[in-house]
Design a protein around this nucleic acid. Structure first.
Length: 435
RNA sequence: GCCCCGGUGGUCUAGUGGUCUAUGAUCUCGGUCUGUCGAGCCGAGUGCUCGGGUUCGAAUCCCGACCGGGGCGCCA
């Protein structure tokens, strides 16, 4: 007999013989009767045994160690006193995997635990439904992104995560040995997805890990994160794909709102659906908005954390959790960005801000070979080291653009999680490499 | 990497020089209890991050290391 899920059983199954398996979450021995709360993926159910009616089963249940995995076969009885309105009186109980005691981290203990302790014991931590709910929401967000892009003619691709050269400079790369040569862990699929724009595979997206050896130590940085990158060609201007990005994010949040109700309830979260179009705020206008709030930045400066938060509050007050910051200064953007024809200090680039945090950044790329090489030299990069990349621009490269978006941050912000690590199963940071 | 704060049983916490044979909870074990669902009641068990130093005496003060929390920088 296959093991039944708590979801498929009901009081209507009264009198039926069932087989169930799960974790023994709690054992309540009242002397003459014992109750065991059995936890499964989709919920909990109750096993019960009376000492007078079945002494061996009573002893078997009463003697269980919490969090052991057990299987029980018995008769389902409808009972309004029991959770779900029914319970199982076993005739057979088998311990499939005995848990050690004490637990390194209680699943239903009445005391909390620090995030660090929880991550050290992530398996135990993830036994809590509210922790797993985060990853169901994450799954829904990613599903919403995939679904939207497929509907708009995109192809999902994967590009190398081991590379012989860095993508953009600036961010630090993890170095590794590659049969005696130096190799790097990919910090971004940027160069590869751009190269694809010269192939006809020119509406692509990728969901893959990115690695940054930056010694960042904050609630929104990790060294390995899931990057959602997309690139589109041919385009006339940035607006051609900003529409796609906002549609994508809206669809992802809609997907969570539509299919993730139980998870959102468990997490006491209720993410707002953005109203489209998401506002485009030019950098210069952002400086003005900040000045009104008493936060003065010099023209050309990148927004610091405080400015980002203040701007986030200003826009939230206008009803916008999400907004695009467009027309960034060229100087604080990577070499591959396209600069404005009539004002080279300003670039065709953007950041997507969500609740005071940078969610995505992107822009139109420089597709003209000579200008691209000139910009590379301008930021101190050696074009010869990027020959594999530049070659794609010499034989017909359409105008293109795209973005990179941090999935972990998206999950964090959608659910208002205090730390990005909550949104990652086994996060990697400056100090954590295990588990 | 920088600034501030911290590290006490498996877990979470009280304790700022002697009154600490270290508080409480949770947990574990034993007992009790025939409807629990944060089960109750009784009893027991488990601990001052590591290394140096100050002092008659250190969980408590000082130095270092490691680790953690918050913030900044950097970015997704």
């Amino acid at each position: 007999m296959a093991y039944a899920s708590v979801r498929t059983l009901s009081p209507a199954d009264d009198g039926k013989e069932v087989s169930v398996a799960g974790w023994a979450e709690d054992i309540r021995n009242l002397g003459g009767i014992v109750f065991v709360i059995l936890r499964q993926r989709e919920g909990t159910l109750q096993l019960a045994a009376r000492k007078k009616e079945n002494p061996p089963i009573f002893e078997a249940l009463a003697g269980l160690v919490r969090e052991s995995v057990i299987a029980a076969k018995g008769v389902l009885k409808a009972n309004p006193q029991a959770r779900n309105g029914w319970e199982v009186f076993p005739t057979q109980v088998e311990v499939l995997s005995r848990a050690e005691a004490p637990l390194p981290l209680g699943v239903v203990d009445k005391v909390g635990a620090d995030l660090d302790t929880r991550l050290d014991n992530r398996v135990m931590d993830l036994r809590k439904p509210e922790r797993r709910a985060i990853f169901h929401v994450r799954d829904l967000l990613i599903g919403g992104i995939r679904e939207y892009l497929h509907r708009h003619g995109f192809v999902e691709v994967t590009t190398p995560k081991l590379a012989g050269a860095g993508a953009e400079g600036g961010a630090t790369l993890f170095r590794t040995d590659y049969f005696g040569k130096v190799a790097f862990l990919s910090q971004s699929p940027q160069l590869y997805k751009q190269m694809l724009m010269a192939t006809g595979l020119d509406r692509v997206f990728e969901l893959s890990p990115a690695f940054r050896a930056e010694p960042s130590d904050t609630v929104r940085h990790v060294t390995e994160f899931l990057s959602f990158d997309a690139e589109v060609a041919p385009i006339r201007h940035q607006e051609d794909f900003l529409k796609i990005l906002e549609g994508c994010v809206a669809n992802a949040i809609a997907s969570v709102r539509e299919h993730g109700k139980p998870y959102l309830d468990l997490l006491a979260a209720d993410p707002k659906a953005p109203s489209l179009p998401i506002p485009r705020v030019p950098y210069s206008e952002a400086l003005d908005l900040l000045a009104v709030e008493g936060k003065n930045l010099r023209d050309g400066d990148d927004l610091d954390t405080e400015a980002e938060k203040v701007l986030g509050r200003v826009m939230a007050a206008k009803g916008h959790d999400l907004f695009f910051l467009v027309e960034y200064p060229s100087a604080i953007k990577p070499f591959y960005v396209m600069v404005k024809e009539d004002d080279p200090d300003v670039s065709y680039s953007f950041d997507l801000e969500y609740k005071g945090d940078e969610m995505a950044s992107g822009g139109q790329r420089e597709h003209r070979y000579d200008r691209l090489v000139a910009r590379m030299k301008g930021v101190g990069l050696n074009p010869e080291a990027f020959e594999f990349y530049l070659r794609a621009f010499r034989y017909g490269m359409p105008p293109h653009g795209g973005w990179g978006l941090g999935i972990d941050r998206l999950v964090q912000k959608v659910l208002d999680l205090p730390n990005i690590r909550e949104a990652i199963l086994f996060p990697r940071d400056r100090n954590r490499l295990v588990p």
